[in-house]
Simulated scan of single mutants.
Amino acid sequence: MSELASEPLTSARIGVITFPGTLDDADAARAVRYAGAEPVALWHGDADLRGVDAVVVPGGFSYGDYLRAGAIARFAPVMTSVIEAARGGLPVLGICNGFQILCEAGLLPGALLRNGGLHFVCRDQPLRVERTSTAWTTAFADGATVVIPVKNMDGRFTAARSTVDELEAEGRVVFRYTGSNPNGSLNDIAGISSADGRIVGLMPHPEHAIDPLTGPSADGLGLFRSVLGAVVSA
């Protein structure tokens, strides 16, 4: 797909949050438009979610990553509303810094620590789709391999061994790095979900893989298309 839809193809409205230091909000909004929904800009200092059907917490360096990545953003007024709405079933996707924020907010378990090699990693990364029953992955085939860019400094997923075992046992590992692990994440985990599958966080950037003209593939578009089915059927 190389052209943006001039009008939304569905009535779905997907919020995209902007914090000070966010870098990828425009890309996430573009991905929402590509998928056929209406992107809705949400500001970190405003608690009003504007009646959206889902929320994307995009990548970047919210609040300059002071204290640690995502630690301050978790307390933003908009996140107070996102936390409440997510616990009520609102689909939420956290990408890179957004994943860090969701972990800080307690919506997903674990934490994202400094990469194992202590270097910023930026490359096209193959992933295996491990779960297709979440609100954000129904467009994929089980076990499919997708190529999505990864770019992070604090992308190493870690958690207590009991938590990792629980995620594995419950099928809540959504994406797994294949080939080489870019950051040392436990069990090669690239993305996880909440127990109900409505909340997903991943370190790679699907919004940068929506068109082969500008990315390594259009594989990332599947996440944004998947949630349309989830909100239409809700």
Rank of each mutant, 00 (worst) to 15 (best):
I17V: 15
F224K: 06
V129F: 12
A230E: 12
A54L: 11
T137V: 12
G201K: 04
V121D: 07
T22G: 07
G116T: 08
L93N: 02
A190M: 14
I14A: 11
T132D: 07
A28W: 03
G60C: 10
V40I: 15
A105Q: 04
I17Q: 11
S194W: 12
M79K: 13
A135R: 15
G89Q: 10
V129I: 14
Y177V: 15
E168L: 14
E207P: 15
G64Y: 13
T18S: 14
F99M: 02
V150F: 04
L102D: 12
E170L: 07
V164Q: 03
V82K: 05
F99I: 00
P8R: 00
S226R: 01
A31P: 14
L113Q: 10
A41W: 03
G184T: 09
E170M: 09
G117Q: 09
G201H: 04
R156N: 06
L186R: 04
T214Q: 03
M1C: 03
L223M: 12
L127R: 14
Q125N: 08
D48F: 15
L221H: 01
F19W: 15
V52P: 05
M1A: 13
G201T: 02
R30Q: 09
V57Y: 13
G184P: 14
V56N: 04
G70L: 01
Q100K: 04
H208V: 12
S81W: 12
P8K: 00
G201L: 05
R225K: 12
A169G: 04
G201Y: 09
L113P: 02
Y66E: 07
R68G: 00
P58H: 08
L113E: 07
G116H: 14
S62M: 01
I14G: 11
G184D: 07
D165T: 11
Q100A: 10
A105N: 04
F61Q: 07
R74M: 06
G116E: 13
V57T: 01
S162R: 15
P91W: 07
T145C: 07
A86Y: 01
A141Q: 13
G64Q: 09
L127G: 15
D211A: 08
A31L: 06
M203F: 12
A139Y: 06
D53W: 14
Y63N: 01
V40A: 00
G220K: 05
I17L: 14
G21L: 11
I72N: 04
A71K: 06
D48G: 05
G36F: 03
A29R: 14
A144M: 08
A5D: 07
T80Q: 08
Q125T: 15
G229L: 06
V57C: 03
C103M: 09
